[in-house]
Amino acid sequence: MEAPSRYASVLRPGLFAGQLHWVTGGGSGIGRCVAHELASLGATVVLSGRTAEKLERVAAEIAEDGGRAITRAFDIRDEEAVKANIANIAEVVAGHGAIHGLVNNAGGQFPAPLMAISKRGFEAVVANNLTGGFLMMREVFLQSMQQHGGAIVNMTADFRNGMPGMGHSGAARAGMSNLTMTAAFEWAHAGVRVNAVAPGWIASSGMDHYGGMTRTIIPKLKQHVPLRRMGVEAEVSAAICFLLSPGAAFITGVTLAIDGGAPLGSPLFPALDHDKSQPFEGFHRAVLPEVLKGSA
């Protein structure tokens, strides 16, 4: 069956018309998907990341689909670059009145047991997944949302039972969840809502970055999910866009798990095998990661 030519969002057309939404890490994976959905719903999207070519490729896709995207290449771990790039978007903000939404999606990590993680490696992962997100939140608040209100959605991960093999990432993601609650309380007076999403095992391009034993395990992960499948990028994007929307106007300070129930249950009561769960395939440009091709 031929794929649809536009993003098939579950949200109403034009929901974000006339608004400006910023997506960090927008050049690939979940960030790319979120950017496409926001643009399909009428938003002008600012795509940021470290690699200009990747951002420009996604911006061209969005333009081809009839949307609008602007790119800014910089490292969210660089405080001065964050300040400058958010200030630099002023000419765009002038046309929209504000930065209406921020999706703090950028991040990254590497698999390793705690005993093998160096101080440098630990700090790098914390900077990627926590410090950089904090800098983006703070500057968007100071330069726009403090005056105009808005909504922020932070990216965490499924850390409910710890993250063995990725303890540095688990620590950073748990920190982001706690930071989300603090910001939701401190910034409520300005009309700013702050929430987070915690994806579990999502079939995204990021899976292809892993090698070794981790790569051999990835196709088997669905057997540890009660829904007996992995999630898809569009399912994470749908949750993020809902949290940015007026439908979530009384939701703030929460971390929403998008994990198919993977942390639930017990080895004493194993989940039953089935094929009843069907994913929401809303992203017309989604591509199955190489590591999952050919898996049953």
Rank of each mutant, 00 (worst) to 15 (best):
T131D: 09
I251F: 05
T182G: 13
T156V: 14
N195F: 07
S48C: 13
P279K: 06
G49S: 12
A63E: 14
P226Q: 02
L272W: 10
A116G: 12
G121P: 11
M115L: 13
A171S: 14
A127Q: 11
V153Q: 01
M176T: 07
R32C: 05
M207F: 08
W22T: 00
T51Y: 08
D208N: 05
L264M: 11
V232S: 00
N88R: 14
A257G: 14
A81I: 08
E139G: 05
K276G: 08
M213E: 15
P267E: 09
I86E: 07
A248W: 07
Q146W: 08
A3C: 12
I258C: 03
V126K: 01
A124K: 14
P4I: 10
S28V: 12
E91C: 13
A271I: 11
Q109A: 15
A151D: 08
A249K: 12
P267C: 07
A81H: 03
A257C: 10
R138N: 13
A112D: 07
Q223K: 10
S9I: 00
V192M: 04
F141I: 08
A234R: 04
G260Y: 04
S5V: 14
I251D: 06
G170R: 01
W22V: 00
Q19G: 07
A196V: 02
V153C: 05
G247A: 13
D208A: 00
V232N: 05
I218Q: 06
A69C: 01
L135C: 02
R57V: 12
G133S: 10
E53K: 09
R50D: 04
G132S: 03
I152W: 08
R32P: 00
